[in-house]
């Protein structure tokens, strides 16, 4: 397996802000899991094998109370349903040179943040970029969990609070330039903001989990945008790519 250094480091630097955000969320997860009765090793294993924040927070009480396995499976399926959609979208970004074997690896690392960074990149992504992108967030997620589980009071609250916004700042830095230059993306962002706020703040529907909110808003908004602003035909983009070469 050949790893291209430039691609790998560009992945690493895109992964760093995700990693910072993950440390702060995983830290809180570690504290939460140990309080519920899991050992630090068990908390770490849950993080290392799942990589799903909302899912993990929902699973811990089921683990701790020895709830039914079908309840566990069903809740995970519902909370993580959006990843099925994201996997379809991510599958379209892989360079044709990426061997199908790597899909087993990249499917595992397909989180909201990694997905969003990879798919909002122009053109295809290489496997070196994907490995670089996933590495730090995975480490941050694991290390953050252990740190929270073993020593919940090790980081001052202000630092956790400050790290908490890293992910969102990065999202803004990804979306805003596209929204500035492309009217269709601007439209997409605007109606996403409106719909998201409505669901978040409106009574009754605000009980919806974050995972469901992401699915409902992104599917609705993307359908509307696909109708109003369809992208150019494949033939057109192929030509454009040929011209660029």
């Amino acid at each position: 397996m050949k790893i291209k250094n430039a691609e790998f480091s560009s992945g690493i630097s895109a992964g760093l802000p995700i990693c910072l955000g993950y440390i702060s969320v995983a830290f809180v997860f570690g504290i939460y899991a140990v309080e519920a009765g899991l050992t630090p090793v068990e908390s770490l294993l849950v993080s290392m094998f799942n990589l799903t924040s909302a899912g993990q927070f929902a699973a811990v009480p089921i683990f701790a109370s020895l709830g039914s396995l079908s309840e566990l499976a069903l809740s995970q399926a519902v909370i993580n349903l959006r990843y099925a959609l994201m996997s379809v979208s991510l599958s379209q970004k892989f360079d044709s040179k990426i061997s199908p074997v790597y899909r087993f690896v990249f499917a595992f690392c397909n989180t909201d943040e990694i997905f969003a960074v990879a798919t909002s990149k122009k053109g295809f992504v290489s496997k070196s970029f994907m490995f670089g992108l996933a590495l730090l967030p995975y480490l941050g997620w694991s290390i953050g969990t252990v740190a929270g589980a073993v020593a919940g009071n090790i980081l001052p609250e202000q630092v956790i609070s400050a790290l908490g916004c890293a992910i969102y700042a990065m999202f803004i830095a990804i979306v805003l330039p596209e929204a500035k230059s492309d009217v269709s993306v601007r439209f997409c962002v605007l109606i996403s903001v409106i719909l998201s706020c409505i669901i978040y703040f409106m009574p009754v529907v605000s009980d919806m989990s974050e995972g469901m909110r992401i699915i409902i808003v992104s599917v609705t908004v993307s359908l509307i945008c696909a109708l109003v602003f369809p992208v150019r035909d494949v033939a057109d983009t192929d030509c454009a790519e040929v011209e660029l070469k």
Binding site: M86, S89, E178, S184, C188, V189, S192, V221, S222
Partner: peptide
């Protein structure tokens, strides 16, 4: 449009 919407 999915990633832009998801990020937002």
């Amino acid at each position: 449009y999915i990633p832009f919407s998801v990020l937002t």
